[in-house]
Amino acid sequence: MNETIGLILLIVGISFDVVGCIGLVRLPDIYNRLQAATKCVTLGTCMILLSVVFYTGLNSIGVKALLCIWFVLITAPTGAHAIARAAHRSGIRLWEGSVMDKYADDKEGTEDTA
């Protein structure tokens, strides 16, 4: 029973990983790529780690997998935020099809005076 749940979680997690990496290749600019890659790969890897818990039970491997889920959930969005901010500050524009960029509008007003 536990192995079946683990197998299902493993399959779903790896399909999310594949979708995230396809998004990393297909989408047009850095910010969209960050969105797809961060969300899908984070949840995919968390599901793989959760399937470790179902396969092995709550022994030293399972507890480490749970801690690893916690670390990945905390660190992945923070890393994505740091990269997005760095990209915007180092002057990379949005894709041509973008609708608006209020961050650039506001920043031009403040950076010259500061």
Partner: peptide
């Protein structure tokens, strides 16, 4: 995740990105 998967796997890529405040 299902939202992103729909957008990535769709041939037309229905995205309309931008930065809001």
């Amino acid at each position: 995740n299902f939202d992103v998967a729909y957008r990535v796997l769709n041939i037309n890529m229905p995205i309309r990105p931008g930065i809001v405040k």
